[in-house]
């Protein structure tokens, strides 16, 4: 235990020996991973490597059978649920943009805004001046001021992506988990998304799960390769792509 505390003091996210099995199939197998504060990390791996399961474990959706998951050097994430973990400062962006379709753009941001979460306080709450200012600020960052009273359902795919990024800014997490952000995007959009993520990385730690190699190259960050639920290799993209085991996993068989 003392060792955990020592090692996790510097790491923002610390996974050690995490194992998750579904009906005997080990989705994660003794996985260990360290993410430093302020770091951006890309996680790649073939289908079924355990990328999404890893995200589920970190955000509290799935409980690991074994292993430690520690956030910010003190919080044991295996004992907390989604709401607790989100409140601690871990945000998650899903593969499909999930905005609230029956809410306006502004209300989407208001729901995501860090702060009030308890039902009894929300019954009587009205947005404060500070909250309104913050909403206006985010609306101008994502350039959606003209659409702020539009319903989420009426936004285009690209606008939804922007709104979701705005919601993440509003949530202001310490660590941001991003699941395949460029799936279904054009090359130009992919490049813009890489810029946006680098921008966010200035003030937030980010973990990106991605298939798209050119996007990972554009991010230019440390890469972790997962395979069959464990870490296969770690390093720069050039280093890991030179690793024969990685080549074997991606191209072999």
């Amino acid at each position: 235990m003392s060792m955990t505390e020592q090692r996790s003091t510097s790491a923002l996210l610390y996974l050690s020996g995490v194992t998750v099995s579904f009906d005997g199939f080990k989705a994660l197998n003794n996985l260990s991973l360290l993410v430093e504060p302020g770091e951006m990390r890309a996680i790649i791996g073939p289908n079924g490597a355990g990328k999404t399961t890893m995200m589920d474990v970190v955000t509290g959706k799935t409980r690991p059978d074994e292993g430690e998951v520690v956030f910010d050097g003190r919080a044991d994430l295996t004992k907390l649920d989604e709401a607790d973990i989100a409140t601690l400062g871990i945000g998650r962006k899903f593969q499909k943009p999930t905005v609230f379709e029956n809410h306006t753009v502004r209300d989407n941001l208001l729901l995501a805004l860090a702060g009030l979460r308890s039902w009894y306080r929300l019954l009587l709450a009205t947005p404060t001046k500070a909250e309104n200012d913050r909403l206006n600020e985010i609306l101008s960052i994502i350039r959606m001021e003209p659409q702020q009273h539009m319903l989420g359902a009426r936004l285009s795919h690209g606008q939804k992506q922007w709104l979701e990024i705005g919601m993440l800014l509003a949530q202001d997490p310490k660590l941001l988990l991003v699941d395949e952000p460029v799936a279904g995007m054009t090359d130009v959009e992919t490049e813009t998304t890489a810029q946006v993520l680098r921008e966010i990385n200035r003030t937030h730690s980010v973990v990106v799960v991605e298939h798209d190699m050119s996007f990972v190259r554009a991010l230019g960050v440390k890469v972790t390769v997962l395979h069959e639920g464990s870490m296969l290799a770690e390093g720069t993209l050039d280093q890991v792509s030179a690793d024969p085991r990685v080549v074997e996993v991606y191209l072999g068989r």
Binding site: T59, E82, A83, F100, W119
Partner: peptide, 13 residues
């Protein structure tokens, strides 16, 4: 509309 999204935003649904 999106229960799990609300959980990941930190709401105790």
């Amino acid at each position: 509309d999106a229960e799990s999204r609300m959980r990941f935003l930190g709401y105790r649904v």
